[in-house]
Design a protein around this nucleic acid. Structure first.
Length: 938
RNA sequence: GCCUUGGUGGCGGAAUUGGUAGACGCGCUGGAUUCAAAAUCCAGUUCUUUCGGGAGUGUGGGUUCGAUUCCCACCCAAGGUACCA
């Protein structure tokens, strides 16, 4: 018979489902442990082999923790709002809810097939009204709070209004973008309702503002940078321009400092924390005001090097700044406008990536140096970004490389303000060794002293102040899409009005057409029933809008990151209809002990969710300020895309190996499932795959068409997705699970490669044969001998360490070695196989019932205690060895115990390096015997 | 460009604190078994060699008795770069 994985896996999966083995309660004597996976977006391509990598690892760890006696919460759900479902709806007219449901069903089948120990009774879906009701509620909370810098937390807008009424805004220290002058309490009371609301909007943690977006007029929609290629839309190739639009934003910047300092307290990968730190981008410096000559306007700049202020020889503004239009001199207007037009066609990423081409235009205007009074020419240049700092820089070419290059390119004078330093070739950017020169009162000072001094002087003159700047920008929260959470807001006299919790959920309306309206309004503009009856608190038809009781509802929806910013709390109490998470549940589970997911979320989801967490913590709605104690990034499993090469202007495709080095044939992606292991393309399959290939011509090499290969992210649009289904079918889930762990280190990205699958499968068959010969059950009650126990305990120790350090790949290897050794011993003892089976159970939990009976466990796998490694066993053994310098002895486990003691002693003493050490010639800390038996540490 | 990660045989990778580089698996070669095949088992497998040895962890330097490991510079690949998820 052999290892019949299908029978075994089906049987146990049915058993788990039937017994609800993995259902977990919110109330237990055991210590809690919450293991969270980043939930998948259910895409139309199905689950690919990359998804399970993290799930398998977390599942092993969850099972391990259960064996160790923890009450483990290990849930799963779906991040089910998103663009792909909407685009599919646009193409086919099918409702995204339908395709999403279909995809989820498929995902669930695939996940079950792989034998995960999720508690499905806690499943969440971000697109379900029961769930997004609470996402909308959190939006309303954000709308109803502002950030108070004095208490350093979010406070209610009501408390802000109370203070306005008493004392105006003079003493308010809050994060806001209010431009109004200060007002007194009486003045506040005199404002009309509209004015009040406008002011309050400038304080709310979610607020409306004009934001620059990529606008594609032909598609009538806003595009992500991702969807733009060479300045035109990816879909259709239409031109894209920058446009300002009223958008909801989240005041995440209010939390910059706390998001930064919170990183100190969590056990996340250092690299990821570093990414977040850089993204938040705290820099200490000063703001400086420059008067514009012949204008009452000022230019505010932020600089990290106020000490170099005497080196300023020009200023540069970001081209998209409104100020540019106000100051530009008539004779430069044409040049400036055509330059602005040019930069509007480039994405920000292109602008940042392109440092070789220095571009810019003189505005004709001059600013006045705040300390010397000199005239300083004002330029615009696209190396200055509008949304960092103030969108304007004071250019100090001697101390900043980009300013230097700009000055050289446009022949702007460069003043050297550094003592004994040449700037003939490059700017001098070193801070530490700087001595300031040619700088009036700063002469002779170091960078540090000059900073302090110059800020003092600027503050005295009212021309600037010391300040801290963060690169982190407020997060745009509006999407002109259909398939997202509706924003629970309606508009009265043009001002946004919030719904209340009782009004929620505000259900997503049905629409005929998922595209923007002909007027360019978001798809919700197509909805017939999309107006708010203020009196009756319900949705009405648009035709009923009368602007007294029935008002238009918000047409934008929320972005993908809204639901994913808090879903992990919903798992704790997924069915609760009254609150987003019940007190009992959140007090018991508190937070996530281990979070597993990809590092591609480092500056997206993982930052936004920390922001919401801190906000909800401020409101006493959540028990902790950081929701995930420990985070591990599983590396992405990359796809190996396949390319064929088209001769320019023809329909002829050429085999890869016929390409000359100079040929610039156009590479075109083809489905990897059409390519075999030798990179040969199934041409007949290709012709059927997409219609344009049916008529194509091919140039073969020795009768085959070779494809080119490239490793990149696995995605449907790159046709490089590999599904796990076939692998489960052919080899079984355990093989897939073990193989994914064996593939390489968990945290490292690696390309998918099916080649080694058979090795792992053979191992599982070998493991099965430890218990069975043909169909005869071999396991006996005989007492294990010392050798067997040694193998067992070494393996337990190694495997425990490997699992705890998430080195699953070496863990699998250890198992393989162990089983190989046991095979050679012809070992059949229950005492040895029992713990081994439990150890292996994360990978192969589906051993036959007969064995489980023999092992004395018939009820539930999860209750089997994990055997503790008996350390004294090895320690006792170690004492027998006479080789001990006055240092610590460390064993290389698998070898040391099997070798002859005298031989070891002799080998150590005979070793040349030992001799050198004893004679004092080798002063170093390490000595090792030649055959790697013992390391002796001094 | 910037931020982050990685680069070791034909391939995936191992080397836990600076100490025999290549564990384990795939692939390949030879053998046993078989009418034959599959499966299984055994042996070999970094390259090179005049069989003494020599070279070798992306490239070039450095520190060290000793470097895959630490330091500096560079090259290449992947992820992110704010509306993909």
């Amino acid at each position: 018979m052999g290892y019949d994985f299908k029978e075994i896996e089906n049987k146990w999966q049915a058993y788990w489902a039937d017994q609800q083995t993995f259902k977990v309660s919110n109330d237990s004597e055991k210590p809690k442990f919450y293991i969270l996976d980043m939930f998948p977006y259910p895409s139309g391509a199905g689950l690919h082999v990359g998804h399970p990598l993290g799930y398998i690892a977390s599942d092993i760890y969850a099972r391990f923790k259960r064996h160790k006696g923890f009450n483990v919460l290990h849930p799963q759900g779906y991040d089910s709002f998103g663009l792909p479902a909407e685009q599919y709806a646009i193409q086919t007219g099918q409702h995204p809810a339908k395709t999403t449901q279909d995809n989820i069903s498929r995902y669930r089948t695939q996940l079950d097939q792989m034998g995960f120990s999720f508690d499905w009774s806690r499943e969440v879906r971000t697109s379900s009204p029961d769930f997004y009701k609470w996402t909308q509620w959190i939006f309303l909370l954000l709308f109803d709070h502002y950030y108070c810098k004095d208490t350093d937390k979010a406070l209610s807008i009501t408390s802000l209004i109370n203070r306005f009424e008493k004392e105006g805004n003079i003493n308010i220290n809050a994060v806001s973008d209010v431009k109004t002058e200060s007002f007194s309490g009486d003045e506040w009371l005199a404002f009309d309702e509209l004015q009040k609301q406008e002011i309050l909007l400038g304080y709310r943690l979610t607020y409306l503002s004009d934001t620059e977006v990529n606008w594609c007029a032909d598609l009538g929609t806003v595009l992500a940078n991702d969807e733009i290629i060479n300045g035109v839309s990816e879909r259709g190739g239409y031109p894209v321009t920058k446009k300002k639009m009223k958008q909801w934003s989240m005041r995440i910047s209010a939390y910059s400092e706390r998001l930064l300092s919170g990183l100190e307290r969590i056990d996340w990968p250092e690299s990821l924390k570093e990414m977040q730190r850089n993204w938040i981008g705290k820099s200490i410096g000063a703001k400086v005001f420059f008067e514009i000559e012949g204008s009452d306007k000022k230019i505010e700049v932020f600089t990290t090097r106020p000490d170099t202020i005497f080196g300023v020889t020009f200023m540069t503004l970001a081209p998209e700044l409104d100020l540019v239009q106000e100051i530009v001199k008539p004779n430069q207007e044409e040049a400036v406008n055509s330059y602005i037009k040019e930069t509007q066609q480039r994405t920000q990423r292109e602008r940042m990536a392109d440092v070789k081409n220095i571009t810019g235009v003189f505005t004709g205007a001059y600013a006045q140096h705040p300390l010397t009074g000199d005239s300083i020419p004002i330029w615009i240049g696209d190396y200055v970004l509008a949304d960092y700092g103030t969108g304007a820089v004071m250019a100090v070419p001697c101390g900043d490389q980009r300013d230097y290059d700009f000055a050289k390119h446009f022949d702007i004078p460069i003043t050297n303000i550094f003592k004994d330093v040449s700037i003939a070739e490059d700017a001098y950017t070193d801070k530490v060794n700087t001595i300031i020169d040619h700088s009036d009162f700063l002469n002779g000072l170091s960078y540090k002293d000059a900073m302090v001094r110059v800020i003092d002087v600027l503050e005295e003159k009212g021309a600037g102040a010391g300040t801290i700047n963060y690169k982190l920008r407020d997060a745009v929260f509006s999407r002109q899409r259909y398939w997202g959470e509706p924003i629970p807001i309606y508009y009265k006299n043009g001002m946004p009005q919030p719904l209340t919790l009782e009004d929620l959920p505000l259900n997503l309306p049905d629409v005929e057409n998922y595209l923007p309206t002909p007027e360019g309004a978001p798809p919700l503009g197509n909805a017939v029933n999309w107006a708010w009856n203020e009196k009756e608190r319900k949705v009405e038809a648009n035709t009923a809008i009368d602007h007294r009781t029935i008002f238009p509802l918000e047409l934008n929806t929320m972005p993908g990151w809204a639901g994913s910013s808090w879903y992990f709390y919903r798992y704790m109490d997924a069915q609760n209809p009254d609150v987003f998470v019940g007190n009992e549940a959140k007090n018991y589970w508190q937070d996530v002990d281990l979070y597993l997911g990809g590092s591609e979320h480092a500056t997206g989801h993982l930052l936004y969710s920390r922001f919401w967490q801190k906000f909800l913590f401020d409101l006493d709605l959540l028990p902790v300020e950081e929701y995930a104690k420990k985070l591990i990034n599983q590396g992405m499993i990359l796809g190996t895309s396949a390319f064929i090469y088209r001769k320019p202007g023809t329909q002829t495709y050429v085999s890869k190996d016929l390409l000359g080095p100079e040929d610039t044939y156009e590479p075109i992606r083809v489905d990897v499932n059409l390519v075999n292991a030798s990179d040969e393309l199934d041409v007949e399959g290709l012709k059927k795959w997409q219609p344009q290939f049916a008529v194509a011509e091919f140039e073969f090499s020795l009768g085959v068409l070779k494809v080119g290969r490239e490793v990149e992210k696995m995605s449907k649009s790159k046709y490089n997705v590999v599904n796990p289904d076939e692998i489960c079918e052919q080899y079984g889930a355990d093989t897939l699970r073990m193989y994914e762990m064996f593939l390489g280190p968990l945290e490292q990205a690696k390309p998918w490669n099916t080649a080694g699958m058979s090795g792992v499968h053979n191992f599982l068959r070998k493991f099965w044969r430890l218990f069975y010969k043909e169909d005869t059950f071999l396991v006996t009650d005989s007492v294990p001998d010392k050798k067997e126990l040694k193998i067992l305990h070494e393996t337990i120790k190694k495997v425990t360490e490997d699992i705890e350090s998430f080195s699953f790949n070496t863990c699998v290897s250890s198992f393989m070695i162990c089983v190989n050794e046991l095979t050679s011993l012809d070992c059949h003892s229950v005492e040895v196989l029992k713990p081994l089976t439990i150890l292996l159970s994360p990978f192969a939990p589906h051993i036959s019932e007969e064995l489980w009976q023999k092992l004395g466990h018939t009820k539930s796998i999860v209750e089997v205690p994990f055997p503790e490694f008996n350390e004294s066993f090895l320690v006792e053994e170690a004492k027998n060895y006479p080789v001990s310098f006055n240092g610590k002895m460390r064993f290389t486990l698998s070898l040391s115990l099997t070798l002859d003691k005298e031989a070891i002693q002799k080998a150590v003493l005979d070793d040349l390096r030992t001799q050198e050490y004893l004679e004092g010639k080798a002063p170093k800390k390490w000595i090792i015997v030649p055959n790697k038996i013992i390391n002796i540490v001094f």
